[in-house]
Amino acid sequence: MAYTKRFDGRKTDELRETSAKVGVVPNADGSAIFQQGDTIAIAAVYGPKILHPKNQQNPEKGVLRVHYNMLSFSVGERIKPGVSRRSQEISKVTEWALAPVVMLEELPGTVIDVHINILQANAGTRCAGINAAAMALAHAGVPMKEMISAVAIGQMGTTIVSDVTKEEEDYEEDGEKAATDIPIAMLSNSEKITLLQLDGQLPVKKMKEVLEAGRDACKKLHEIQKNALKEYK
């Protein structure tokens, strides 16, 4: 049984219904909400601001700090509030996904705090988080060379699909896990990859197809981010 029809009826390269909005947290210097299907991420940026204590300052360039957090009620079984090993790792890879385009060298000695909270989770939370964070950074007036968009590409059996759901993440063939999850973040102009992770089993020769699907999806996501930012008043 090959995965020819997606569980939710989408075409293989079709994204879930996506929406975005900036300016959702009035206290923050920049903020955005990003919804990808049933996954909702909200991001707020504080800064660039003075970094305390002083010994953590970098006189060469600014510091970008990302804090990713899933709200306790964003998933099926409640998660205990607070930092987990998983959220620590995602915070770090998100930081690395965003940092290459943030012109930190223009902001020596400062810090930019990015807080990402997941309100509702149905796979691809780190990607929705990156999409929201990139918009929040732009909204906060942080100088950036390009925008960043992210998507989870999946391999279901042998089929490559874009923007996987939780149901697809758990896809099985003959009683065995047959899904591979590949979150990708890509820059809007240079199309360089700033986040790449993989869990599962992907034949080497398939990598090209995966990256092309990622590029195609990120282009569409970038349009959504762009339109929402342009509505800023």
Binding site: A138, L187, Y232
Partner: peptide, 8 residues
């Protein structure tokens, strides 16, 4: 006047 975004 149209709003532009980073990278545009």
């Amino acid at each position: 006047r149209e709003i532009v975004i980073p990278g545009e």
